[in-house]
Design a protein around this nucleic acid. Sequence first.
DNA 1: GGCCGGAGTTAAGCATGCTTAACAAGTCGG
DNA 2: CCGACTTGTTAAGCATGCTTAACTCCGGCC
Lengths: 174, 174
Amino acid sequence: MSNRFNDSTYWRAFGENDITHSAGHYLMAIDALRDEYGYARVTDVAETLEISRSAASMAISQLKRRGWVSEDRNRFLLLTEDGAEMARLVEGNFAILSKFFEEVLGAEPDVAKADACKMEHLMSLETGRRLVWLMRHVLNDSSRAADIQKVMTRFARDKEPEDPAGPDADKGSN
Amino acid sequence: MSNRFNDSTYWRAFGENDITHSAGHYLMAIDALRDEYGYARVTDVAETLEISRSAASMAISQLKRRGWVSEDRNRFLLLTEDGAEMARLVEGNFAILSKFFEEVLGAEPDVAKADACKMEHLMSLETGRRLVWLMRHVLNDSSRAADIQKVMTRFARDKEPEDPAGPDADKGSN
DNA sequence: GGCCGGAGTTAAGCATGCTTAACAAGTCGG
DNA sequence: CCGACTTGTTAAGCATGCTTAACTCCGGCC
């Protein structure tokens, strides 16, 4: 059996990500709060994310130890340079994925955002950049965009129960 | 502040997924083992996934309780109908995502597979189907495929350090 | 018949990430 | 000046998901 199941470096890498789903949202919350109010406290982050203050407190301690969050002289929360970079990465991945799901694939906005939110911290910088590039150069070309729209409209019309991988997907590839 | 940060139903939905990353791989491992050897035991799953037998044992108990795995009369592992469906969903998502990352975005095979493996259990059936459809109807059209290839070749040439979201991505959207 | 080894389970420990409860410290009002 | 509220932290508990260690159980072999 020589497929990806034999190679634990693949599937177990899930747990060794640069950033967890929740960490990404802590960073983005701090960023958004500073944008809007000029400062961010533990309590504000907890409120924004609708979790307990204690959970926010402990999680933010981790983020400080990891060098992504610091405090100003008034003990207000700051993103370090690395922290801001991670926040931008996750934010950017969310933006591009939800845009792709909605505008190219024609998914419902809610579905597009839910899927994007779950995947945002997992897509590599490299792949994210490639997707941005494609979107920019395909969608901004109105003829190509219309082309794709036509195809996806046909999808909406022809839609029938079918295997998500489809007959020509290379199942168990590697 | 009226963006997705205010709505915990979005980001916290991550933990309420239909299936976890590891559960997906347990199901796929059982499926693959039965395909190749005609049967699957706890020990075989543990070996395939390179985890301890005890971890496999406990995880598979959960999957049985969840109605995704059962046993035949010789105590060999079986996927239930629901289990097989979940396995096919995750498998299909992996196939289509890695194919998309590699063949459309032009990512390195390793990067494509790593990203796909991390995201496979998170993409909804709906979005997966749409991606399959697009791939089938865009990539199978050689002129359109060439078009995209040309764009992505230009990406490889022009590649420069840039924000993954790019200037025209709707950051903080909702 | 007894013993060994493979298969499977259970228990205890660790990390993440959440909860509630209890508590320390600072600020503000009467 | 002191009580009350706000802020932040720590502790204990729970779920997931892994580990190692210590079993049970069963089948085959001398």
